[in-house]
């Protein structure tokens, strides 16, 4: 029942610029994309602007950065014109963000349960008791076996995989319609990663929402997402269906694929990516 054509987020010609002492650095240059009720992956190397793009959508860029766009439409909200007050109700309630490392992104001096409840109390003005009920149900939904015990734990008392599941429950408890996940599993072991992803996958499908999955792991994005956006030096070089990634045309995408060691296609030497300055001209 997933309708991919139903656009949740539309971004047209968005640029993010950082003024520095030695001139303006353009971290993201004229990117346009839309996200429906689907899983969209953004891949690129460090510094390609993938995280900056994710943050700019939620207007979480550093205060000095300048975001320009022809259009940034999230459901019925114009993100370019929305006041900071409006944004407060968008962030967490309508667009939620899952970050890379739960060790650093959870509040270390608040219990897990309090942190998750905070989101519901803030956005839905429910009572503490109701918030607790909701939190326990949500923890159970992300396969935490003993939610009552985990509710009172501090982030340092839980493992990495559990921390990431807690983060997912915190982000999903207010029922957002778009989730931006910035390298959600990079800090996790392979076995735990699988678990966390399948929970995320289930929830996205079950609630029929959109997901932007930012990652540098080609194999992961290819197998997890529906569509893949490939970024290079702040620009989108190509957008392909995940299943067609092997047939990607852009030399940069091809270069990344060939640079990857693979069990299925062993090679003696890995291809080294040659960067072509012409990729930056459009």
């Amino acid at each position: 029942m997933r309708d991919h054509n139903d656009t949740i987020l539309a971004v047209e010609n968005m640029s993010v610029e950082f003024p520095t002492l030695s001139g303006v650095v353009t971290a993201v240059r004229d990117v346009s994309f839309s996200v429906g009720r689907e899983k969209v992956g953004i891949i690129g190397e460090s510094g390609s602007g993938k995280s900056t793009t994710g943050r700019a959508i939620m207007r979480l860029q550093p205060p000095k950065a300048v975001v320009k766009a022809d259009r940034m439409q999230f459901e019925n909200i114009d993100l370019m014109k929305a006041s900071e007050e409006q944004m407060l109700s968008v962030r967490g309630k309508q667009i939620a963000m899952i970050l890379q490392d739960p060790k650093y992104s959870l509040n270390p001096v608040m219990t897990v349960g309090e942190q998750i409840s905070e989101t519901v109390i803030l956005h839905e003005r429910v009572s503490r008791k109701q918030a607790r009920e909701r939190t326990l149900a949500m923890l159970e939904r992300v396969n935490i076996r003993d939610p009552r015990r985990v509710f009172d734990l501090y982030p340092h008392e839980v493992s990495g995989g559990m921390g990431q599941r807690i983060m997912i429950s915190m982000m999903l408890i207010a029922s957002p319609s778009l989730i931006i996940a910035d390298e959600p599993t990079s800090a996790l072991d392979v076995t735990v990663r699988q678990q966390v992803l399948s929970i995320l996958d289930d929830l996205v499908t079950e609630r029929n929402i959109g997901l932007i999955f930012i990652s540098h792991d080609l194999n992961l994005v290819r197998s997890f997402c529906d569509r893949v956006i490939i970024m290079y030096a702040g620009q989108i070089v190509e957008t392909v269906a995940a299943a067609d990634l092997d047939n990607a045309k852009h030399p940069y995408t091809r270069g990344l694929l060939n640079a990857l060691p693979s069990l299925d296609h062993p090679r003696d030497r890995l291809e080294v990516l040659r960067r072509d300055p012409a990729w930056l001209e459009n």
Binding site: V190, T191, R193, Q194, L197, S198, D201, D217, N219, L220, V221, R222, S223, F224, L263, D264
Partner: peptide, 13 residues
């Protein structure tokens, strides 16, 4: 085997 599957990416349940 789990590690091999993991290196190929996400395996749909």
């Amino acid at each position: 085997r789990t590690l091999i599957d993991g290196s190929r990416g996400y395996v749909v349940k």
